[in-house]
Amino acid sequence: MDQKLKAGAGVSSLILATGAVALGAFLSHRHRLRTTDNASSSAKRQPPGDLALVGRSVTIRQARAKLFEYWRDFSNLPKFMENLESIEDAGANDALMWNIKAPAGRTVSVTTEIDSEKQDEHIAWRSVEGSDIETSGEVRFEDAPGDRGTRVSLTMSYDPPGGALGQLIAKLFQREPQVQTRHDLKRFKMLMETGEIATSVRTNDETRVVKQENG
């Protein structure tokens, strides 16, 4: 495994990580033909099936420092990340245990460490060695023009292992990770701009039903 794998690393290093050499050769060939336009890597067309890297941006009308601070307290993340059951402290080096909702009421856990961070600018994390899921993520905070607030970009990558657990996890993350990331970021925006997450349910019972459907 490539130990230097980081969120936001290009398609080619992800391919190294999955060890799909033939596909990698095909992709790096494709890669060479690409123009280097200004679009973010998450907007690049990716070959079908290659959904390991997902990313999105939103603009939030709040100060960079406030958003950074909220995110840096990782226990806040389950408030807007639908797949997350909880995040707990897991020891030294800012280790965190992510408890992720899996199909059939199961939970999958993965421990991460902070990989790099810069106050009010970015936070990157990745799974510790020997984890069942290789995962990494990075959130960036940049000033948006004028008084538009802060542009927040989230990139996540997953590399599920083989075997039965691997299949389960793959299924979990293949539940349209692009859509999931976009939805999570939009919920973050709602929470930061309005203090709540919009729902059109009429009764609290309905809220519970909706949650069950998604969980």
């Binding site: 309005t194 709540e196 919009a198 729902t199 009429r202 009764t203 019972d205 809220t207």
Partner: peptide
């Protein structure tokens, strides 16, 4: 006849 609405969010 449908269920009465309730306060869901704080606003």
């Amino acid at each position: 006849t449908v269920s009465d609405p309730e306060i869901i969010n704080s606003r």
